[in-house]
Amino acid sequence: MRKLILLFVAGGMFGSGLAMSGMTNPARVIGFLDIFGAWDPTLAFVMGGAVGSYAIAMAVFRLRWPASCPAQDRKGPISKRLVLGAVLFGIGWGIAGFCPGPALADFAALRIEALWFVPAMAIGMILSQRFLGADRD
């Protein structure tokens, strides 16, 4: 039960951070990706804050609770699947300005685009897990 409360709080921090930083607004995301237009660097500050704080927090947690931390794999194979998947994801992200986290947040906020996006994303995930051998572990 304590674990589930912690996970709800962790998810709440994640979702609150997304909304606070403007990442639930597709215009901000597309503004960052539009480096040849009126570039909006907000997303770079969000990523910087997130990557840095994740690295620091995990370093602390690894010292305090080493057994609870998943094994670190720094040299995962750079496969064709990795690159092909990233290309497809990037194209979809660039079209709509939604990646999975913000899409779920905007789904909960009943934004009409997210109400269409999330079921389509779920279908894509089910198809790739069932027929494209994704997630074989």
């Binding site: 998947g85 979809g92 709509a96 986290g101």
Partner: peptide, 20 residues
Amino acid sequence: IPIAGLLVGIGTRVGGGCTS
């Protein structure tokens, strides 16, 4: 939007991850 959603769903699972 549904096309974008499909691409994000397939791409993130085939590529093993998303922005987070």
